[in-house]
């Protein structure tokens, strides 16, 4: 098989993986605190539209003086904040008001999709048709790669020629891995997600941890949405652009067994499956078979975990229940 097709395929898989990876990492952080936030799709929509707006209005006012890094930087900051707002709303409802986690997550999905498409529509109206990043921003966003390294044959294309959000996502995954496994705060967070009463008994502020985890986690999900609108769609708002990728991220969390390192490979795998048929169409195999694989694999992982009664790759135990310390 042609090596170029293979490297190209890998390249596209990684590009497709990036928004998934952000969504997955955000949800891993959230679930590690004992909250299952099914609103990833909504938070990605919020990040996608608000991140895009930040960049769009900056470009609108800066005009020819647009500096690409500032446009992207603003998109990152506002994409994050938008997702974090979603996570914060979720925390207020589930942690403080003890609302059902599943239902709150779904409400957040409905809300976030509404926010995303509304803002996206308004932006398109404002731009008299459709939004689009300026040349300066595009240069920063698109294909930067790492100088010199990207010129290495094959490996250069496969590893060193991505836009900076790809590297950002991978750094984020490594950072999260380090945080959860090596730091005290990460350890405390895991305790909160496994057994809030134990954490409470040793003086960990359960409420604070859950708020912060869900909000920062939401922010990371928001970044995933921002990547879709700013990078993949080059600053153009496409109606319903997140298109279910938030839900794939939820599946990926299970598939990755709540581990950021596995999330990297899982995201590339799932991303790869989504572009696989473009590169290797198999005769007689319908496209949907490729699309089903991620979900089927996730179910398989889920069932396997439960049969083995595996403690390691199971969902944090407190997920789905809200903690209430009975009065003493």
């Amino acid at each position: 098989m042609d090596i170029d097709i293979l490297t190209n395929f890998f390249f596209m898989a990684v590009i497709a993986a990036t928004p998934l990876l952000f969504g997955t990492l955000g949800e891993i952080l959230t679930q590690k605190s004992g909250s299952i936030n099914l609103g990833v799709e909504g938070m990605m929509f919020m990040g996608a539209s608000i991140g895009l707006s930040a960049s769009y209005f900056y470009e609108f006012y800066a005009g020819d003086g647009t500096i690409g890094y500032i446009a992207l930087g603003l998109a990152v900051i506002f994409g994050f904040l938008a997702g974090a707002l979603g996570g914060f709303i979720y925390s207020v409802l589930t942690v403080t008001f003890r609302a059902n986690q599943n239902v709150t997550g779904l409400a957040l999905t409905i809300f976030g999709i509404g926010v995303g498409n509304l803002i996206g529509d308004l932006l398109s109206t404002h731009a008299h048709g459709f939004t689009s990043s300026t040349e300066a921003t595009r240069r920063v966003v698109a294909n930067v790669g790492i100088p010199f390294l990207r010129d290495i044959p094959i490996l250069g294309r496969m590893l060193f020629s991505y836009n900076m959000m790809v590297y950002f996502a991978i750094i984020m995954a490594l950072l999260l891995m380090w945080f959860l496994n090596k730091t005290r705060v990460g350890l405390n967070l895991r305790a909160v997600g496994e057994s809030p009463s134990t954490a409470d008994a040793v003086g960990i502020n359960v409420t604070k941890y859950k708020y912060l985890a869900a909000s920062i986690g939401g922010g990371i999900c928001g970044l995933g949405g921002m990547v879709i609108s700013m990078v993949d769609n080059s600053g153009t708002w496409v109606f319903n652009c997140v298109a279910g990728r938030g839900w794939i991220a939820v599946a990926l969390v299970i598939f990755a067994a709540w581990k950021p390192s596995r999330a990297i490979f899982g995201a590339i795998l799932f991303g790869g499956l989504s572009v696989l048929r473009l590169y290797f169409p198999l005769d007689g195999v319908p496209a949907q078979v490729y699309d089903i694989v991620p979900y089927a694999a996730t179910i398989f992982a889920l069932v396997l975990t439960s049969i083995r009664k595996s403690k390691e790759s199971a969902q944090p135990k407190a997920c789905g229940t809200n903690y209430f310390r009975e009065e003493r």
Binding site: K182, T183, R184, V185, L187, R190, E194, V202, I204
Partner: peptide, 22 residues
């Protein structure tokens, strides 16, 4: 009152202040 999926050492230092990393 112990967290099942953590090690003995991790349970022991749970909630204590100290250096960022363990």
């Amino acid at each position: 009152k112990l967290v099942d999926v953590l090690t003995a050492a991790e349970n022991i230092i749970l909630g204590l202040k100290g250096s960022v990393t363990i």
